[in-house]
Design a protein around this nucleic acid. Structure first.
Lengths: 141, 141
DNA sequence: GCCATTGTACTATTTTATTAGTACAATAGG
DNA sequence: CCTATTGTACTAATAAAATAGTACAATGGC
């Protein structure tokens, strides 16, 4: 991999959303650790061949979510692990079910069998066991 | 579920891409069977509260992919099952790995633990075993 | 033949995403 | 103090996505 993240210009998902997802994924999977520094806004823009404004927007958004912390003249750093809304109850179960079905359909559409997918999930899950860090709550609405 | 598909206006993924994904998912999971008719362009637009042009674009795109077949004055029908590229080798493995990581990150970002996710995947995979399809739902006629 | 239904094609408009460029603000280092 | 580096804040321009509306084309039922 050339750089930490990889974006696809032909993915219908907007670049800012792709980058946001990629950064979160890197943190969740441990490729980016706590307090670790991210590339500068301008550098990452060059690496990914996208505009610096787009990178800045993503960093700002992730900072608003409490995941990153930026300091002028210094850089941007991983502050905490991404935390979800963590709704409880039926809705929560339904959300997981929907998300999973979406994923399985996507995989099936690309020609992967259920067995392959399951195996891959098991492998990746085993890699990071349990780390569902407790609920951090921010006030946002 | 009010209708066959569910779109989220706040999802950064464009509506047309969401709908395309939803239709493919419905076919892959067997909620839509071969030769089954889809809602009309105008009806689905009303159901999903989106523009008819957007629906028409998606139907046309899926027809171009050979998944759907449309006939004027009649309707739009499922023609074949979505087929993946089924590339082999390293790239294929890498693709599955990337896709899975993305999914796990998404799930983790929404507050689901690895255990929960793994369990859900196991459940859904068990539900449709080998065949990605084969199971037609009985419907009232 | 008539006509309602369905997919298709087009133009126009608005909103969103992305880029480009410039300028400013805070920090670290000499 | 000076300056390079970094994040931040704008404005402007372009491209893509989505909507609104109208019209046309093929099909099937009567």
């Amino acid at each position: 991999m050339a750089s930490l993240f990889a974006l696809d210009a032909h993915d219908p998902l907007p670049l800012y959303a792709q980058l946001e997802r990629a950064i979160k994924a890197a943190i969740v999977t441990g490729r980016l650790g706590l307090e670790q520094q991210l590339p500068t806004v301008r550098q990452l823009a060059v690496d990914l061949k996208i505009n610096a404004n787009t990178v800045a927007r993503v960093y700002a958004e992730l900072e608003a979510q409490g995941i990153l912390a930026s300091r002028r003249g210094v850089g941007t750093f991983v502050k905490t692990l991404p935390a979800g809304a963590s709704s409880t109850g039926v809705k929560r179960a339904q959300q997981l079910s929907d998300l999973t079905e979406q994923f399985l359909a996507e995989a099936a559409g690309r020609g992967f069998t259920s067995e392959e997918v399951l195996l891959q999930v098991q492998r990746l899950c085993a890699g990071r066991k349990e780390k569902p860090h407790g609920r951090r709550e921010k006030k946002e609405s």
